[in-house]
Computed example of a mutant assay.
Amino acid sequence: MSDLPTQSTPLNQHSIRALEQWLDSLGASRVDGDPCLWSLVTPEWTAELQLEREDLRVAWQRPDQADRVCSLPYGLSRADVEAAIQAGP
């Protein structure tokens, strides 16, 4: 059973536990030593997700390409943030 709010709920309305559960459900893994840093690996790219004070910072990496960085405000819905992350670099 999911403790997550609906997909249309902004991230700033999620508890820390719900954010962690959501990141885990995306397949992200917490980076040792930093509770705010998560890593997401896909066959095409990897991403570093940083829970910052004002927004979620996403840095995508692809082999042989420059990193792409985006800051996603916590006021966006979880569905919108998830779609942006999954779209990749």
Score class of each variant (00 low, 15 high):
residue 58 V to H: 02
residue 9 T to F: 03
residue 12 N to V: 00
residue 82 E to C: 11
residue 26 L to M: 10
residue 77 S to N: 14
residue 36 C to R: 10
residue 11 L to Y: 06
residue 72 L to M: 05
residue 30 R to H: 09
residue 18 A to L: 12
residue 67 D to T: 04
residue 29 S to D: 08
residue 32 D to L: 07
residue 50 Q to F: 11
residue 40 L to V: 13
residue 14 H to V: 01
residue 85 I to K: 04
residue 33 G to Q: 10
residue 81 V to F: 13
residue 15 S to M: 03
residue 60 W to V: 01
residue 16 I to C: 00
residue 5 P to V: 05
residue 20 E to F: 15
residue 87 A to R: 08
residue 76 L to C: 14
residue 83 A to H: 15
residue 63 P to W: 15
residue 31 V to R: 11
residue 54 E to W: 12
residue 52 E to F: 03
residue 2 S to H: 10
residue 44 E to C: 08
residue 62 R to N: 03
residue 5 P to M: 06
residue 12 N to E: 05
residue 86 Q to S: 09
residue 60 W to Q: 01
residue 7 Q to W: 15
residue 13 Q to P: 07
residue 58 V to G: 01
residue 18 A to F: 15
residue 15 S to I: 03
residue 38 W to K: 00
residue 77 S to Y: 15
residue 26 L to A: 02
residue 68 R to L: 04
residue 66 A to E: 06
residue 35 P to V: 06
residue 49 L to T: 01
residue 5 P to S: 03
residue 26 L to Y: 11
residue 14 H to C: 02
residue 22 W to M: 04
residue 22 W to C: 02
residue 80 D to S: 13
residue 78 R to S: 08
residue 32 D to C: 01
residue 20 E to Y: 15
residue 28 A to H: 12
residue 52 E to M: 00
residue 28 A to T: 06
residue 49 L to G: 01
residue 15 S to V: 02
residue 62 R to M: 07
residue 2 S to G: 01
residue 30 R to I: 02
residue 3 D to I: 12
residue 6 T to K: 08
residue 49 L to S: 00
residue 42 T to K: 02
residue 29 S to A: 02
residue 2 S to E: 07
residue 48 E to Q: 09
residue 65 Q to E: 08
residue 27 G to M: 12
residue 56 L to D: 11
residue 20 E to M: 11
residue 17 R to M: 02
residue 29 S to Q: 10
residue 24 D to S: 09
residue 69 V to P: 04
residue 56 L to H: 14
residue 18 A to G: 12
residue 24 D to Y: 13
residue 57 R to F: 06
residue 51 L to I: 06
residue 28 A to K: 10
residue 77 S to L: 14
residue 47 A to P: 14
residue 16 I to L: 07
residue 88 G to L: 12
residue 54 E to M: 05
residue 14 H to S: 00
residue 26 L to P: 14
residue 14 H to E: 01
residue 7 Q to F: 14
residue 85 I to C: 02
residue 87 A to L: 05
residue 49 L to V: 04
residue 87 A to H: 10
residue 79 A to L: 15
residue 63 P to R: 13
residue 81 V to E: 03
residue 21 Q to P: 12
residue 43 P to H: 13
residue 40 L to C: 11
residue 48 E to K: 08
residue 70 C to M: 11
residue 9 T to H: 01
residue 86 Q to F: 13
residue 70 C to A: 08
residue 79 A to V: 14
residue 54 E to G: 04
residue 42 T to G: 00
residue 85 I to F: 09
residue 62 R to T: 07
residue 69 V to R: 03
